[in-house]
Design a protein around this nucleic acid. Structure first.
Lengths: 199, 199
DNA sequence: CGGTGTATTTGACACGATGTCAAAAAACGT
DNA sequence: ACGTTTTTTGACATCGTGTCAAATACACCG
């Protein structure tokens, strides 16, 4: 056995950084190889293909992101928690300069099954997975809030609505790059879900 | 002058069909040339580049789509109009087999400015334009509804919220392909915006 | 009716990206 | 020390975008 000359996780981080900034299409394996100080062929040997590399890098990101979200959602009134949730979401889209947008949404649109083939089924599942988990997280938060009398309504329906809005925010971010607009939409959504005058 | 041997509009239709089904990345100019019965070089001569061709094809689509939307939004109660609006939106995403998704959202994510450069500014504007126009359309519908006492609230804020949801639906469609889910979200959104029990 | 100009068509070419493969290199266990 | 095994390395095949110059075909004008 010859040992690997590079750090697996380092490469995933470098790769995801590029994918996030420039998109999957806009990033070549040569770019990543140069940035990571690795030979292009080694990447193929270790990961198989560009898409497979992206998927591993994405899953690494998704894991970390979910943990951060979960942690941030753990304290305060329901309204406070939802505000924190949207703040984190928007901050994620607007991070970097220029802002990098939402990697999940972009990835879904860039890689989601191209033609009838449906070969990117793994990719689609990876994205759908993160969306599902976040939905569940929000639903649990709403259910807990309902038990404390901070919310009356269908937690599942409300959570789905909130997640839909966050996906929409990702798209509007890319279309207009108007952060105050995103914040307004978020605040309005919280008002709608909790009932305008509720506290 | 030598006259062109193909129909400009035919090519735009053939091209957009492919772009919509397979994405911009997944469609090569050779594909379009073959399908349209035109030489690849002629496309470059007539349109300049793949992206420019896509943009012209997209603008053609956007014009038609907006007209159809406007027409469909012209009659009935406010609730009925909003229902029609969401129905059309979802039908658009789900058209084709397999469903083609939302070309605007996909285009935004596929082409939106790659690196710091910002060369795709034209593309971004084209997408943002359609989104803006649809937002205005919904806002006008809400304002009219408000005058008839069918809606009380801020039409601009509500319209922005509705458009955000439609963008989110485009993403969820791609992630889960679950049409009943999309309909549920749409109905729930209408309830939230109009007030749950309102009629 | 034939020549001339002009835009389109056509095919060759350059370039860069993905992905494959076989040969070389480098550790680890025995 | 030696051989096995995996990684590395560089060459290669293929495909897609985009450019260019030569050939072509029509329209217009004399």
């Amino acid at each position: 056995m010859r040992p690997r000359e590079f750090d697996h996780d380092d490469v995933l981080r470098v790769a995801f950084d590029q994918f996030w900034r420039k998109g999957v299409r806009g990033t070549s394996l040569s770019d990543i190889a140069r940035d990571a100080g690795v030979q292009r062929g080694s990447l193929y040997n270790a990961f198989g293909s560009k898409e497979a590399l992206f998927l591993q890098a994405y899953e690494r990101y998704a894991r970390d992101y979910l943990v951060a979200l979960q942690k941030a959602l753990g304290a305060g009134t329901l309204r406070k928690r939802l505000t924190t949730f949207f703040d984190l979401t928007i901050a994620n889209f607007r991070s970097g300069s220029p802002p990098r947008g939402c990697p999940t949404t972009r990835g879904l649109m860039e890689l989601g099954a191209a033609e009838g083939e449906g070969l990117d089924e793994d990719a689609r599942k990876a994205f759908a997975n993160l969306v599902s988990r976040i939905t569940t997280l929000v639903e649990d938060t709403l259910s807990a809030g309902a038990e404390r009398g901070e919310f009356s309504g269908n937690p599942a329906a409300a959570a789905l609505h909130i997640i839909t809005v966050t996906r929409g925010l990702a798209v509007l971010e890319r279309a207009f790059g108007d952060e105050p607009q995103l914040r307004k939409i978020a605040a309005h959504t919280i008002d709608l879900v909790l009932g305008k005058g509720a506290r």
